[in-house]
Amino acid sequence: MSDRLVDGYDLVVFDLDGVVYLIDKPIPGAAEAVGTLHAEGTAIAYATNNASRRAADVAALLTGMGVPASADEVLTSAGAAAVMLADDLPAGAPVLVVGAEALRAEVREQGLTPVERLEDAPVAVVQGYGPDVGWRVLAEAALAVRKGATWIATNTDRTLPSPRGPLPGNGSLVSVLRTALDRDPDVVVGKPSPALFRAAASRSGATRPLVVGDRLDTDIEGAVGAGMDCLLVLTGVTGPVDLLTAPPARRPGYVAADLSGLFAPADAAQLLPPDADSAGGWRLADDGGAVRLTGDGTPVDALRLLCGRVWDGVAPGDVRAGSDAARELLTSWGLPG
């Protein structure tokens, strides 16, 4: 029997930005990884906080990149928000939409009326990412919420990954209204809410889902909240020091450099306990109140080893280098070494 990580699960739920692609380009190896899962009959879902595309558009985008996908495999925060609104509001109710045309289309498809101004008497405001969101619509939304409209955010991702570095995400736009209104949204639909992950599992009938993401504050926290195992890949937002300093609610069970980790042995990606003293070619020894990393190996093995010790109370700045390779690695992570 195979001991690959993926073989322990009956559904793999992928985040998109930073996991499968960056903006409009597939991450190396992603198409091959998804293609292998499809060929082996493993159920797949894509759960994204990005509210600027509809499920069919996301599937078409992925297919165009060579990543196998169908619309029924895609769950978006825009679609989930529109369904939530339709469950709570009468047919035809006016909803002020802050975001892209995809979010307006989802609201319209659920039998509600997208509007743009306070004068249209919106009973709810739904806010999602859109590259053209500006002051005017944010001002109308602030006025509507002050007048009593329910405020729903599709997600609160502070940033979006890009080849040039993180860019402002919907969470940054939500912060504009939060500052103006001195309050939080009434509901946040997307990750880290576990709703998208639970919907994916329910849709496929899965009992052993694995969530794969690149963000601790959305993908991993959402998976932990849903009680699902999760794999962090280091192809997007999260870096090694982010993982070392993660609070308990944002700690994955597995970490890998990229999606190839799905097909490696499970114990090659598993985060190690505090008493572990070796991983791959790395060794770890107590050094007073600090720890000393020696040897050589992959960055992921060093990270798997160090997380257990740091999460047990050793400060990241108290990780010392005991070899040239360790010094070079820690320095590349921004630690003293």
Rank of each mutant, 00 (worst) to 15 (best):
D3R: 12
D3G: 12
L5P: 06
V6Y: 05
D7T: 14
G8F: 04
G8Q: 11
L11A: 09
V12I: 15
V13K: 05
D15F: 10
G18C: 13
V19Q: 14
V19R: 08
I23P: 00
P28V: 07
E32A: 15
A33Y: 00
A33C: 12
A33G: 06
V34A: 12
A43I: 11
A43M: 12
A43P: 11
T48F: 15
R53K: 15
A56S: 15
D57H: 13
A59T: 13
L61W: 03
L62M: 14
D72Y: 03
T76C: 14
T76A: 09
G79K: 03
A80G: 03
A80P: 01
V83K: 09
D88V: 07
L89F: 00
P90L: 11
G92F: 11
V98R: 06
A100W: 09
E101H: 11
E101L: 10
R104Y: 01
A105S: 13
V107N: 02
R108G: 06
E109T: 02
Q110I: 03
T113Q: 14
T113M: 11
R117K: 11
E119P: 04
E119Y: 00
P122D: 14
V123F: 09
G128N: 10
P131M: 08
R136V: 14
L138V: 00
E140W: 05
L143P: 00
V145W: 03
A149H: 04
I152S: 00
D157C: 09
R158Y: 01
G165A: 11
G169C: 08
G171H: 07
G171D: 01
S172W: 01
L173W: 01
A180G: 09
D182T: 12
P185C: 12
D186F: 07
V187D: 00
V187R: 09
K191P: 08
S193W: 04
R198D: 00
R198H: 03
A199Q: 15
A200D: 11
A201K: 07
R208I: 08
R208H: 15
R208L: 03
L210R: 06
R215M: 07
L216K: 06
D219W: 12
I220F: 00
G222F: 02
G225P: 05
M228W: 07
C230I: 01
L231P: 03
V241R: 09
V241Y: 11
V241C: 04
D242H: 13
T245Y: 02
R250S: 13
L259N: 07
S260L: 08
L262H: 04
A264C: 10
P265A: 15
P265C: 12
D267V: 03
A268S: 15
A269H: 06
Q270C: 12
Q270I: 06
L271Q: 13
P273M: 02
P274E: 08
P274S: 06
A276E: 13
D277F: 10
S278I: 07
S278R: 15
G280I: 04
G280N: 05
W282V: 04
L284T: 01
D287H: 14
G289Y: 03
D296H: 14
D296P: 00
D301K: 07
D301C: 05
L303W: 08
L305H: 13
C307A: 15
C307P: 00
V310A: 08
W311T: 04
W311F: 10
G313D: 09
G313S: 09
V314A: 10
V314D: 03
A315N: 10
A315S: 13
R320P: 00
A326E: 02
W333T: 07
W333C: 10
G334N: 04
P336N: 14
